[in-house]
């Protein structure tokens, strides 16, 4: 990554559906047809039982705040500290994300607070799922 250039993820054959979904405004996770486990990140087999009988499904987009830090390690173009968070989806899997529409402070970012997915266009190929407080911004 060149200095100052925005980092952009590059999908692989196993993850392309996820990024295509995000571009459409859908958060896609996967579920095993044999053991029913929901999982993330994407792969064409179940990490719980090894079965290849898996399907892609749209997540509800509801989540809770599992843990985070407020990073003061800023990239070019960033001016203020921001939270790097891990959220727990309603279906069970966890994912890293940012929390938007919310002050980036310990007072506003409370563990287990309800969140909902939102999407941010990153560049012409990538749209990133992010999360915001459920039911609108908090004070």
């Amino acid at each position: 990554m060149a200095k100052g250039k925005k980092f952009s993820p590059v999908p692989t054959p196993e993850t392309q559906h996820y990024w295509d979904g995000a571009k459409r405004g859908e958060l896609l996770i996967q579920q095993c047809d044999d053991c029913s486990t929901h999982y993330f990140p994407p792969r064409p087999f179940c990490p719980n039982c090894g079965s290849r009988n898996v399907k892609v499904k749209k997540a509800s987009g509801k989540a809770t705040l599992y843990s985070y830090v407020i990073s003061h390690m800023l990239r070019p173009g960033q001016e203020d500290p921001f939270a790097i968070a891990v959220v727990e989806l309603e279906e069970g899997p966890r994912m890293m994300t940012n929390i938007v529409d919310c002050p980036q402070t310990p007072e506003a970012l409370l563990l287990d607070m309800p969140l909902e997915v939102t999407f941010e266009e990153w560049d012409e190929t990538i749209t990133l799922p992010k999360f915001k407080p459920a039911g609108g911004a908090t004070s």
Binding site: F7, P9, I84, N98
Partner: peptide
């Protein structure tokens, strides 16, 4: 790199090395 799982599912959210990952 950008095709790894870290590259796709963590790096875009602003991680800057271990200080912003190991601490979470």
């Amino acid at each position: 790199g950008a095709t790894s799982l870290v590259g796709q599912f963590e790096q875009p959210y602003g991680i800057m090395g271990p200080t912003t990952m190991f601490t979470i």
